Amino acid sequence: MKSKNKWLLAGVATACVFSFSMGAQAAGSLEKIQANLNHGIKFILNGESWNPKDSNGAAVKPISYAGTTYVPLRSVAEATGAEIKWDNDTQSISISTGDQEATRQPFNTSNVSHVKTYTESGITNNVDELLFGETQYTSAFVVQGVNSANQGVTFKIKEGTKKIGISIGFKDPKGTNATYSIGTKTSTFATGSVNNGTVVTNTLDIPKGTTELILEFKGQPGANGKGYLLWDESWLEK
């Protein structure tokens, strides 16, 4: 992340705080203060509303103390691409804001999740339906009832994701094919077609702040296909 990325909060000077286990050796350096959680501050990240969260996904409110507003450093760093490390031996925090080597992670339950919508979609581990040719897949997002009316599966990716690679499959007992698109509610990142019983791949750059994506399929009239986003060969980079 380059230094030109800045946070602006109207009317306050802003500092950051970091949540970690300090250990007994830091007890002598602690000073007791009286501060207040500030529920009135709103955050804007790259033009979009953003709320800081802790490592468990719970909302974290900023703290106001002596004219300065403190926000959680790790939450801000992960949202803007910086790397944070805590050294318990030296009681020091390291912050790296330069270009970091991309870390690629396969899709799994810790970095992607299904979003329930009106469509008949979810996660499947049915190995019988996840056999494409001679390749056996083990997990996938799936949407059922794909026909000429668009059907999609909505899913969330980990905050701070910069790029994803996805494997898309389609099956229809009637042998028809389908087209697909992937993006957000307001933007389309990629489109393509997928034949019955086959898998295609896409690599997508993810705009900053994007955490929810929609993979949508459109089949033939009268079809009853299933569209898949296959986890085994899908990945994300931060």
Rank of each mutant, 00 (worst) to 15 (best):
M22K: 13
L236N: 03
T68K: 08
I166M: 13
N224I: 05
K32C: 07
G227R: 02
I182D: 11
W235E: 01
P72F: 01
N108T: 06
D172W: 03
Y118K: 09
P52T: 14
E120L: 13
V146A: 00
L230Y: 01
V115F: 04
V146Y: 00
L73N: 02
N51F: 12
S3L: 03
T90Y: 00
D128G: 13
T138R: 00
I157E: 04
F20L: 08
S21K: 04
I63H: 14
I164Y: 11
S29A: 12
T179A: 09
A190C: 11
T198V: 01
Y137S: 00
S148I: 10
L236K: 10
K156Y: 07
K53I: 07
K218D: 06
L204K: 09
G11I: 06
I164T: 10
P221C: 09
K218M: 12
T161S: 13
Q91A: 04
T124H: 09
E159V: 11
L8P: 04
T198H: 00
K162Y: 10
V12S: 12
E134F: 04
G169Q: 08
M1F: 13
N224D: 09
L9M: 12
V12Q: 09
R74M: 10
K162E: 08
S148Y: 11
W86E: 08
W7L: 15
S113R: 04
G183V: 11
L229M: 13
A35Q: 11
M1Q: 14
I214A: 02
V127C: 00
V71I: 15
N5D: 10
G98T: 14
T109V: 12
A102V: 08
L73W: 02
I206W: 00
G165R: 09
T135D: 14
L8F: 15
W86N: 04
S139I: 01
L204C: 08
A35N: 12
K116W: 00
D232H: 05
S49R: 00
L37I: 06
N111A: 00
I168F: 00
L45M: 15
T154Q: 14
M1L: 15
G192S: 05
G122F: 08
V112L: 05
K218F: 11
N51L: 11
K61D: 15
S121C: 10
F155D: 14
N126G: 05
G11T: 11
L131Y: 05
A24V: 03
N125R: 08
P62I: 05
E83L: 15
F170P: 04
K174F: 12
L45P: 06
L130Y: 06
T119I: 01
L45A: 15
S21N: 13
I166G: 03
N36G: 02
K208I: 08
N177A: 09
K4F: 07
G222P: 01
F43Y: 14
A13R: 14
E101K: 13
S181H: 06
S92I: 09
T203K: 03
G165L: 05
E101W: 06
V71P: 03
N51P: 01
K158E: 15
